[in-house]
Design a protein around this nucleic acid. Structure first.
Lengths: 112, 112
DNA sequence: TTGACATATTCCTGTATGGGGATATAAATT
DNA sequence: AATTTATATCCCCATACAGGAATATGTCAA
């Protein structure tokens, strides 16, 4: 019952719009927390918390550098989402194919 | 506060694993509710509720056929997710490029 | 050691769930 | 009209947040 944990998988983690923003910022370059705070304009604890979730599901990696923590995107996990969505590629890609399929379905209905 | 509505956008709707399963089943072919019930083995109200969310965010379309309701995948909305994830393509695609970028970053650090 | 800087963690609360069960709505059939 | 078939809706409850505020932890510098 209740919604699944945000840390269950990349899909849940990425459902939160703010976490997508964080990833979009990190897409530009590896970045310490404070850079994200400045760029996003959110309270620092908020940024850290979102980063925590992204980290836990593996969407980002961290490395320490002095007192800073540099976060970077982990492509592998994002590929998971990309690959899943790609499963539906034929539903947006080949418009002609879709029309053809629809026609075939209708023909099948008629011949049932 | 609290998590965003599941009907806020495709990302939230797709966060729920069961809803992804529904979409995967519909990827095979347009289908009435009862076929999904049989295939997924869930209570019918559960299937209808998940379909309701998917419908509200536009991930599926419905058309009536007698007393049945035929659900089908709406590719456009799934493309949204695919396109977003694609933004991070370079983080998994060109391994060599990533190594090169990392090297450049390190060089920059040394020269700072 | 004492600060200053960078980041993480804890506590609190309103809220939107997802599942279960019962029921309502709608359409075809007899 | 009464029944059956197909699907949607309603009610209830435990739960996992997300945001805000305060605070803790960790690290470098003087």
């Amino acid at each position: 019952m209740a919604r699944a944990a945000t840390t269950l998988d990349p899909f849940n983690a990425v459902a939160e719009p703010k976490r997508r923003q964080v990833l979009e910022a990190l897409a530009e370059r590896e970045m310490p927390v404070n850079d994200l705070v400045g760029r996003l304009g959110w309270p620092q604890p908020m940024v850290s918390k979102h980063l925590g979730v992204l980290k836990e599901v593996g969407l980002v990696n961290v490395r320490r550098d002095g007192r800073q923590r540099l976060y970077q995107v982990n492509g592998e996990k994002l590929k998971t989402i990309h690959d899943w969505a790609k499963m539906f590629e034929r539903f947006w890609a080949h418009q002609l194919l879709r029309i053809k399929e629809q026609a075939e379905r209708k023909h099948k209905e008629r011949t049932n």
